[in-house]
């Protein structure tokens, strides 16, 4: 077992365990902070999938942006939310959670069944890319390639997403302004 594999299983374990904690805990603040750990572990998994630029983007945007935003929204939405959480039942398995658990569990079984059936390592295009040396190797630096592709091949989605980001910015500012008349 190589070092990369050990690291992979460690990161995967941290990601899955912290995700389960996020889903199971009653304390909302704790679940948000645990979500930090999940995102960091996922960034580690991206690094092990040889996508270092995506991992850095994940840390900057998700951890630096989205989670801080969620924390702000949580703090701003006052004491009542905290009280609601306090009065929830403390049992992990309660009868009204059962349908959700059943749904998620059955869906997991379906997904796992499909994953093991499809045998992703032996897909045609994956094998072809290994033969034609079209796969990313641990010593190849991809950031330069990403930059060039972003400005040539993927210019249209890049522009579209910049317009969409602008729209979302204006929309969020409009929605959250104070004292809207009519």
């Amino acid at each position: 077992m190589s070092l990369a594999q050990v690291l992979f299983y460690m990161m995967a374990f941290i990601a899955v365990a912290s995700t389960l904690f996020v889903a199971a805990t009653k304390n909302l603040v704790r679940s948000i902070f645990m979500f930090f750990i999940t995102l960091f572990a996922l960034a580690g998994l991206y690094v092990l999938a040889l996508a270092d630029f995506v991992a850095i983007t994940q840390i900057v945007i998700y951890v630096g942006g989205i989670l801080v935003l969620i924390l702000f929204a949580f703090m701003l939405s006052g004491k009542e939310t905290l009280n609601v959480i306090g009065t929830q039942s403390n049992k992990f398995i309660s009868i009204n959670k059962l349908p959700a658990m059943l749904l998620a569990g059955l869906f997991l079984i379906v997904l796992l069944n499909m994953i093991f059936k499809i045998d992703a390592n032996n897909l045609d295009w994956v094998k072809k890319s290994v033969i034609t040396k079209n796969m990313i190797l641990p010593d190849s630096s991809m950031t330069e390639n990403i930059g060039i592709n972003l400005m040539t091949k993927y210019l249209l989605p890049f522009e579209a997403i910049s317009v969409l980001l602008m729209i979302a910015l204006i929309g969020a500012a409009h929605l959250s302004r104070k004292g809207r008349g009519a």
Partner: peptide
Amino acid sequence: KYDRFNNGGQMFALFAIVLAAATTAV
């Protein structure tokens, strides 16, 4: 990982992250 020259997967992962940021803000 298996698309070195076009970078399709990583590129759309970046787009998905940006989209997630926009949705979360709204």
